[in-house]
Computed example of a mutant assay.
Amino acid sequence: MAPIPNPSAEPQDDPDAYVGLDSDGAERLARDRGWPAVRSLPPGAIITMEYRAGRLNFEVKDGRVARAWKG
Rank of each mutant, 00 (worst) to 15 (best):
E10Y: 07
Q12Y: 11
L21T: 01
F58D: 02
D22Y: 00
E10C: 07
P42V: 03
K61P: 01
W35S: 14
R31A: 10
E27P: 00
R31E: 00
R28H: 11
R64K: 15
R31T: 02
P43A: 03
E59H: 01
L29I: 04
R64N: 06
R64Y: 07
G20V: 08
A2F: 14
V60P: 02
Y18A: 01
R31V: 00
V38F: 14
A17W: 10
E50V: 10
D14E: 00
R31D: 00
K70Q: 07
Q12S: 14
G20I: 03
G34A: 11
D32A: 15
A17G: 06
W35L: 12
S23D: 09
D22Q: 12
G44E: 08
P15N: 09
L21N: 00
V60T: 08
Q12F: 08
M1Y: 15
S23L: 00
P3I: 12
D24K: 00
V19G: 08
P36Q: 02
S40A: 15
Y18Q: 01
G44W: 05
D14W: 00
M49Q: 07
G54M: 10
P3R: 15
D24I: 01
R67M: 15
D22L: 04
V38K: 07
K61W: 02
G63P: 04
V60S: 04
P36S: 07
K61G: 03
E50L: 03
G71S: 05
G25H: 04
A9D: 11
E27W: 01
R33A: 10
R55V: 12
R31C: 00
R67D: 15
E27L: 10
L29H: 02
G25M: 01
F58S: 03
Y51S: 04
P43N: 08
V65S: 01
P5L: 10
G54Y: 05
A9N: 08
V19Q: 08
G63R: 00
P5W: 08
S8R: 15
A45E: 03
A17T: 06
G20L: 07
R33M: 06
R33S: 13
A30T: 04
S40W: 03
L41M: 09
F58M: 06
R67K: 14
A37M: 13
V65I: 13
I46D: 09
G44L: 12
N6Y: 12
E59S: 03
R55C: 10
E50M: 06
P36G: 03
G34I: 08
